[in-house]
Every structure is written in structure tokens, then in C-alpha cells.
């Protein structure tokens, strides 16, 4: 049991928690928050791996994830606003216009 594995364990737990959040919450904002948690967990796993091999690549990957998360959140929140204004709800279960 070493440090890297512990960090990976933490990342796994964070990831699962985020997943649970995405799955259980109906509110779009909460889902987005959970997605952030998952991304963070993924980034943490990258950093752990990078530090294990003592390479900067892991941190580079974290930076990319960071950038992606920022872009995702900005677009996602804009969509949330849009959805709220159009449907007056935040409940994803009621946003079923794509069903056939």
C-alpha cells in the first residue's frame, strides 16, 4: 500500500461519488457540479500517475482537463440558463423532447 495507490483510491472514490451525483440528482445544476467532481477525480488520477513516473505529462493532462472543464462549464451553464428560461424547470426527467 503506497502513496500513489492511496491517491488513486481517493480519485476512484471521488469519481464514484460524482457518478452517484450525476445519477441520483435531477437538478441540472447538481449534475453539472457532479460532473466537475468526476473531472477533478480524473485529473487527480492523472497527476498521481505523473508523479509516480516523475514525469510532467500527467500534469499537462490535468491542465487539458482543466481547460476542458472550464469550456464545458461555461457552455453547460449557458445551456442551463436557456433551459430554465424555456422550460421553467431544472428537472432533467422532464426534458424529454428527444424521446420518440
Amino acid at each position: 500500500m503506497n502513496s500513489a495507490q492511496m491517491v488513486l483510491l481517493v480519485a476512484t472514490v471521488l469519481f464514484t461519488l460524482g457518478l452517484v451525483g450525476v445519477l441520483t440528482r435531477k437538478n441540472v445544476i447538481f449534475m453539472l457540479i457532479s460532473v466537475e467532481i468526476m473531472l477533478n477525480a480524473a485529473g487527480m488520477a492523472f497527476v498521481a500517475a505523473g508523479s509516480k513516473w516523475q514525469q510532467p505529462d500527467g500534469q499537462v493532462m490535468f491542465l487539458f482537463i482543466l481547460a476542458m472543464a472550464a469550456a464545458e462549464v461555461s457552455v453547460g451553464l449557458a445551456l442551463v440558463l436557456q433551459i430554465y428560461h424555456q422550460h421553467k424547470t431544472m428537472d432533467v426527467d422532464r426534458l424529454k423532447e428527444l424521446r420518440d
Binding site: V22, K26, D93, L98
Partner: peptide, 17 residues
């Protein structure tokens, strides 16, 4: 199959999971 396409995002994620 279209039962599965119920438009519910959470169901989709469950599917992925």
C-alpha cells in the same frame, strides 16, 4: 428499443454505467 430512448438523461448514464 425506443422504450430505452425515453429522453431521460439519467437513464442514459445508467446505460453507460
Amino acid at each position: 428499443l425506443s422504450v430505452s430512448q425515453n429522453g431521460s438523461l439519467r437513464m442514459y448514464i445508467v446505460g453507460v454505467l
